[in-house]
Simulated assay, not measured.
Amino acid sequence: MRGAAAYGRGAGAYARVGIESNVLSASPHQLIMMLFDGAQSGLRTARLHMQNGNVAEKGKAISRVLDIVNNGLQAALDLEKGGELAERLGSLYEYIARLLVQANLHNDEQRLDEASALLDNIGSAWREIGDQAKGG
């Protein structure tokens, strides 16, 4: 079992280095996309833990998503340059954060689904912007 545990630690360290390398070489647009991807991954994890009754892990997963929304996506908004669009996104991120807190408190998968759908819609718009920038 010692070999498997050592392998697991090594594989985890290798994955972290890969993620760090991706972050360091990413454009600002790519970093935002990574945040959306991370949020969706966290929501999937939270949903699984919610369905399995694992309260502590569900809470950790939702906390990670809240951190992404509040300290990643929300913090990245430039209200001066973004104007009304940035303000509206900020309000939407605040709403998503409230959905996540309520989902956690009440084990409410519908609220998780709503947060996921909203983040997916915004993330899709970011993807399109990136695709247009590459093509144009």
Score class of each variant (00 low, 15 high):
residue 29 H to Y: 08
residue 80 E to L: 10
residue 6 A to C: 09
residue 19 I to R: 15
residue 96 I to N: 01
residue 43 L to C: 02
residue 136 G to K: 04
residue 115 A to Q: 01
residue 57 E to C: 07
residue 136 G to D: 13
residue 131 D to K: 12
residue 5 A to T: 13
residue 65 V to R: 02
residue 62 I to P: 01
residue 126 W to N: 02
residue 117 A to L: 09
residue 123 G to T: 02
residue 47 R to S: 03
residue 44 R to E: 15
residue 30 Q to C: 06
residue 50 M to F: 03
residue 135 G to T: 12
residue 68 I to D: 00
residue 33 M to Y: 04
residue 98 R to Y: 13
residue 52 N to S: 11
residue 31 L to P: 03
residue 124 S to F: 10
residue 28 P to N: 06
residue 39 A to P: 01
residue 65 V to Q: 01
residue 131 D to V: 12
residue 35 L to A: 06
residue 126 W to A: 07
residue 52 N to R: 15
residue 99 L to Q: 14
residue 100 L to F: 05
residue 25 S to A: 13
residue 98 R to K: 13
residue 84 E to D: 12
residue 8 G to Q: 13
residue 7 Y to Q: 09
residue 112 L to C: 00
residue 9 R to F: 14
residue 84 E to L: 10
residue 109 E to P: 02
residue 14 Y to G: 08
residue 21 S to R: 12
residue 43 L to T: 00
residue 63 S to I: 06
residue 29 H to F: 05
residue 65 V to W: 00
residue 77 L to K: 05
residue 68 I to Q: 00
residue 14 Y to C: 11
residue 4 A to D: 11
residue 89 L to S: 10
residue 106 H to L: 14
residue 20 E to C: 09
residue 116 S to M: 12
residue 128 E to I: 12
residue 17 V to P: 07
residue 125 A to P: 04
residue 29 H to N: 11
residue 101 V to L: 10
residue 108 D to W: 06
residue 92 L to Y: 09
residue 16 R to Y: 05
residue 83 G to R: 04
residue 27 S to C: 03
residue 16 R to A: 12
residue 103 A to D: 04
residue 60 K to C: 09
residue 59 G to I: 03
residue 75 A to C: 12
residue 92 L to S: 13
residue 123 G to F: 01
residue 90 G to Y: 04
